[in-house]
Design a binder for these strands. Structure first.
Lengths: 196, 196
DNA sequence: CGGCAGTTTGACCAACATCAAGTTGGGTGG
DNA sequence: CCACCCAACTTGATGTTGGTCAAACTGCCG
């Protein structure tokens, strides 16, 4: 409610989250926005979700009407946006299985696995089994993304550390000695064995 | 895995669900398909989700390649599909808040509220405060949709009945004496007061 | 009149939340 | 450069919600 949305855009650098909250403060993050992700909804003038920066961000934004014109004129833009929207829909549907059916431990393992895999893919170093990267979210954001409390997230991270599945350098950097060990904790049993 | 998808389509009549499962049997329904809903994903040859009929259904289906040609040729089809996909994305994001942050009672109340509202809208009789309709899903499907067990769904239905928020006729027909009473149980506190 | 799938109810238990201290570590001012 | 500060995080004790296991109930169909 309040002023209408005037822009859509795309994230150029940094990390942000898209979330929704109940009046009593309960919050659910529905997605983490990374560079190249689209923000906003052409065809609608009313924001429904909160976009929150999780770091310094750069956003490339368009007047919403201008973007809608581009959409009408450029023949490649529509299919591209449809493709991105469908990818997002698939990602969000996968996350629903996590929210509705996974245990706290599986949730935390899955989240770490996802971020690690994305980082590894971007850097192109697929040959190493071990890996380390920086979590772009606070524990509170992690909790709101997983449908857990901060304390439960923290406890499960400690448990995974004790089990040797991950190691921590400081509070944000995570080391993964063996990807398959981590994958085994996600509950997916996905036989995507492209690892040696 | 297995044979590639050869068709996309749209639901003409009946009710179906789209779901995903873990190997140990845990299942999450990610959406309920009603007449006019689209099924499938142009641009992809691999089914990722299970579509399960919840009643007799009629489906209008297309060869996936034929549909992709229509998409290229017809100028109104792309935007239409984009609009539908974005609507679905919004619906699914709203459901994530339910899965991650709502109590069992709020989940059950929200689901009943949604089905009732949709039915009421379709029938056009917005003037009555009370309403009755038939739940199109078994308790098991309800549980898989809400991320709960059958038993918990059953208990919460009984609790709402005892509280006078709903009444049951048989096991599938639900009577709602006062919509606002039901809405108050959803946890949304949404001030959409278009009721008298 | 069974038979059986779907549902309800009860007793008990485990997982996660809540409440309450502690601990860590990065940034700031002295 | 050090000491302090404060937000973010961890850990522990306890409570509550929803899951599990088990038994009865309903109603539809043969």
């Amino acid at each position: 409610m309040g002023e209408p949305m005037r822009h859509v855009g795309s994230l150029v650098s940094g990390v942000a989250s898209i979330s929704q909250a109940l009046e009593d403060g309960r919050r659910q993050i529905m997605g983490v926005l990374l560079p190249s992700d689209f923000i906003g909804r052409p065809g609608r003038r009313q924001a429904q979700y909160d976009i929150t920066a999780a770091s310094e961000v750069v956003i490339c934004r368009f007047e919403i009407t201008a973007f809608e014109n581009m959409l009408r004129v450029s023949p490649s833009l529509g299919p591209r946006l449809l493709e991105m929207t469908m990818d997002e829909l698939d990602a969000v549907r996968d996350w629903m299985l996590l929210l509705g059916r996974k245990s706290a431990r599986e949730k935390v393992a899955t989240l770490i696995y996802h971020f690690a895999a994305k980082n590894r893919l971007l850097s192109g170093e697929l040959d190493h089994q071990s890996w380390h990267f920086m979590l772009p979210l606070t524990r509170e954001a992690l909790a709101d993304y997983l449908g857990l409390t901060i304390e439960t997230v923290s406890r499960q991270m400690s448990a995974l550390k004790k089990a040797g599945v991950i190691a921590l350098q400081g509070q944000r950097v995570i080391v993964i000695p063996d990807f398959r060990l981590l994958q085994a904790e996600t509950g997916d049993e996905c036989n995507n064995d492209q690892l040696p």
